[in-house]
Simulated scan of single mutants.
Amino acid sequence: MTANGRPRAPLMTNTQADRVKEVARLAGRPSRLRRREFLAEGPQAVREALRLHLTRVDAGAGGVVVDFFATDEALARHDDIAELLVHPTAPRLRMVTPEVLAAMSSTVTPQGFIAVCRFVDTPLDEILASGPRLVAVLVEVRDPGNAGTIIRAADAAGADAVILTGGSVDLYNPKTVRSTVGSVFHLGVVTGADVQDLPARLRAAGLTILAADGHGSSSLDDLQEASESRRFAGSQGDGDSRPPSSGGDDPQPPTPQPTTPWPTGEPSRSVAAASSAADDVRLEDPAAWLFGNEAQGLADTVTAAADARVAVPIYGSAESLNVGTAATVCLYASARAQRAR
């Protein structure tokens, strides 16, 4: 008997069994698309898959995990996973030999657990209707590691969702799933969004659109300093950090200031420069960050639809930042400004 009182299935020992081959085929996109299932591998990923599964089933929704495979050694090392499997609505546990697990796995050194999961992506309409405050948009990001890193960073920064446009890497590529380290089960992820109509839909949902662009005219530092300046001014006054009205019923917009190009070397750190670069963009407002392809970046047609093109300053000699690193910096800047509001 298993820990939750179910009959224990026989130990799977045949690496050539049909079920073993069916699981292994999920490493390929055609099989994933046909069955709408994917692999979660390793203790962290399967732990989060099980937690989401139990939460959904307990709420009366469909579960996530279709099959769960583990070796005796792995289960003995992870008591918390064994405890999740005790739950009455947990998926059935199938014990396998290390050789069988290796035959199923997409990795060279499997870590003792594999869960076959149903697709977990969320429709774009559902995300936008939920009133998101922070969203990461991947525009033709094709590297699985970068996509997974951005999903993980968005999760850590408290973002509401990640949107992958058409032409981006497959969310369910095993390398992408592994790179999220379980975060794919934590937040809404949209796949296959149309990049042409996406800006209008994001803006209609109340989101400021910020394009991460190494050649952007706005500096992330300037936007952060302007946000801090508004917060400080608000804390010294009546709590309203917006510019004062010049009379009448409606507040008047600030007078635009010319943007001063950065000199060579260290960017200007003056509050005036920060304000001139960020009069119309407030990091504390709901935002959708656009992150582009690793080689080409964002197309001009995409950046033209954004409210601002924002560059992450580079103080050292590096030529550029990896898109996953840049996304982490940008998402945390917005998250900090929104939480400090």
Rank of each mutant, 00 (worst) to 15 (best):
A3N: 14
R6M: 01
A9M: 03
P10S: 05
P10M: 03
Q16G: 13
D18F: 09
R34M: 12
E37H: 10
F38W: 04
A40T: 03
E48W: 10
A49N: 07
L50V: 01
L50K: 03
R51I: 08
R51V: 07
R56S: 14
D58P: 02
G60Y: 02
G62S: 12
G63V: 03
D67C: 09
D80E: 14
D80L: 12
H87T: 11
A90N: 00
A90M: 02
R92G: 14
R92C: 13
R94G: 12
R94I: 10
T97A: 06
T97L: 05
P98Q: 09
V100P: 01
A102W: 02
S105M: 00
S105P: 04
I114R: 04
E126Y: 05
I127Q: 13
G131D: 03
G131T: 01
P132Q: 09
L134C: 05
L138K: 11
E140D: 15
E140W: 05
N146K: 05
T149L: 11
G158K: 06
G166P: 06
L171R: 04
Y172N: 11
Y172F: 15
T176D: 02
T176A: 15
T176Q: 08
V177Q: 08
R178I: 08
T180R: 00
T180Q: 01
S183F: 05
F185I: 01
L187W: 06
L187S: 07
G188S: 08
V190S: 05
A193S: 01
D197Q: 13
G206K: 08
T208L: 08
A212L: 06
G216Y: 09
G216K: 08
S227V: 01
S227P: 00
E228M: 10
G239L: 00
R242E: 10
P243T: 07
G248L: 01
D249P: 07
P251R: 15
P256D: 01
T260M: 14
W262P: 11
P263C: 12
S268Y: 13
R269T: 15
A273F: 05
A274K: 05
S276P: 04
A277W: 03
D279E: 15
T303L: 03
T303H: 04
A304I: 09
A305K: 13
A306Q: 01
R309P: 05
A311N: 04
Y315P: 07
S320C: 12
S320A: 13
L321A: 02
T325V: 14
R336P: 06
A337G: 14
Q338M: 10
